Amino acid sequence: MKKEDLRIIFMGTPEFAVGTLEALIKGGYNVVAVVTQPDKPVGRHQDTLQPSQVKVFAMEHGIPVLQPVKMKDPEFVEELRSYNADIQVVVAFRMLPEVVWGMPRFGTFNVHAALLPQYRGAAPINWAVINGEVETGVTTFFLDHDIDTGRVIEQRKFPIPDDADVEYVYDGLMNLGAEIALSTLDKVIECDGKVESMPQDDSAATKHAPKIFKETCEITWAKNAKNVYDFIRGLSPYPGSWTTLVPKEGKPLTMKVFKTAKTNIPSVGMNPGEITVKEGRLLVACADNMLEILELQISGKKRMLVRDFLNGFKNIDNYTCR
C-alpha cells in the first residue's frame, strides 16, 4: 500500500493538533476529512462564532470538515462512514465512542503528549512541568474504551530544561507529535495495518493529568520554593498561575505570575506569601526560601516585568500574597 492510498480521517481542535495535520498534508498523506469541535461563541454578547484552528487549516487546504455536537449522532456516524477511512488519527480531541473509534479497518490511534501510562488525562504537558519532571514525550496508541489506556505503538522522549515553561514544552511536543504520527502511519502502511503494539502497565500509571480549572491555578506559597517555581512555569503563559494581593487596608488585587527565579535566600521568620522588596527585586516567602518574581500581571493591566511594576506600584510592601 502507498501512503496516497491510505484514507485518513483526522480528528483534533487546537493549535497542537494543527502541527500533525500540517505534517500529514505536506507529507503527501491522503487526509479525506477532518473532524473538529463546533464553532465556539465568542465576544461580549457571544454573538460571534470562532472556528477551531484545525478547521481553519483544513478549509485553507480544501479538506472537508465535520463538526458534530454529539459523537453518537446517527447522521454524523453515517457521514463519517461514507468517507470509508482506513484509519483515524486523533490529536487533542474529545473522548470517542466505540462506534466511531472502531469504524476504520485499521482502527484509530491517538497522539498523546506524555509517556504513557504516566499522565493520562486532559493536561499532560502542564502537569509534567508542574511536577518538576526532567523528561516527558509523546505516545501513539490505539484507542479503546477507557481514556488513554490503549495499546502503545510508539513513544519518543523529550527533555524538559529546568527553566522551561509550558509554551516551550508545548512547541517541542507539537513538533515531536507530528513526527511520531507520520512514523506510526508509515508502520501501518508497511505492514498493511497489522501494527505491533504493547499493552500498558496500569500499575505504573501513578501520575495523572486532570483538566485544569481556574481554582487549580491558585498558588500555594506554603510549599517549598522549588515546588512553587515549577507550579508557576507549569501554567505559564496559559492559563497562568495567580495569587491574591491582600493589603493591610483596602481592596485585594488578583495577580498572575508568569516567571520567577529561585534564590538561596532563606525565608526564616517569615510567613508564606509575605512580600519583600530588596534592591529592585520582588521576593515572596515560601516554606523554605524566597522566590523572586520576574514577570506578572495585575488584574486589568498588561503583563509586565517586575521593574516596570515596581516603578508604578510603590506600596507593594503593604501587601501579602495569599
Rank of each mutant, 00 (worst) to 15 (best):
K2G: 14
L6G: 04
R7I: 04
T13A: 01
E15L: 15
A23Y: 02
L24R: 04
V31L: 02
V32G: 05
A33D: 00
T36C: 03
P38G: 08
D39C: 07
P41Q: 07
R44L: 12
R44C: 09
T48S: 13
Q50R: 14
S52Y: 10
Q53M: 15
Q53R: 13
V56P: 11
F57D: 00
A58K: 10
E60A: 15
E60I: 08
Q67F: 04
V69G: 11
E75K: 15
S82C: 05
V91N: 13
A92Y: 02
M95T: 02
M95P: 00
M103P: 06
P104N: 04
P104H: 06
P104M: 01
F106Y: 15
V111Y: 00
V111A: 03
V111K: 00
H112I: 10
H112M: 11
H112C: 14
A113T: 03
P117V: 06
Y119V: 00
R120L: 08
G121W: 11
A122P: 13
A122R: 09
P124V: 08
V129C: 03
E133D: 14
E135G: 13
E135V: 10
V138I: 01
V138P: 03
V138A: 09
F142V: 00
L143W: 09
L143F: 12
E154T: 04
Q155T: 09
F158I: 02
I160G: 08
D163F: 15
V166C: 09
V169S: 04
L173D: 08
L176N: 06
L176I: 05
G177N: 01
E179A: 12
L182T: 14
L182M: 15
L185H: 06
D186Q: 04
I189E: 05
I189V: 12
I189K: 06
E190L: 07
G193F: 07
S197M: 01
M198A: 10
D201R: 09
A205V: 01
A205M: 02
K207G: 08
A209L: 06
P210V: 12
F213L: 05
K214Q: 06
E215L: 12
T216V: 07
C217M: 14
A222Q: 05
A222Y: 00
K223S: 04
K223I: 03
D230V: 04
I232F: 02
G234M: 05
G234A: 07
L235S: 09
P239R: 02
W242T: 05
W242K: 11
T243N: 02
T244K: 05
V246W: 05
K251C: 08
T254C: 06
M255I: 09
V257F: 10
V257M: 04
V257P: 13
F258Y: 15
K262S: 13
N264V: 09
V268I: 12
N271L: 14
N271C: 12
N271G: 10
P272T: 09
I275N: 04
T276S: 13
V277E: 09
V284Y: 08
V284I: 14
V284N: 08
A285R: 00
C286W: 03
N289Q: 15
L294W: 15
L294Y: 12
E295S: 13
L296E: 11
Q297S: 11
L305A: 14
L305G: 15
V306R: 12
R307W: 13
F309C: 10
L310R: 12
F313H: 07
F313K: 02
N315L: 05
I316S: 10
D317M: 07
R322V: 03
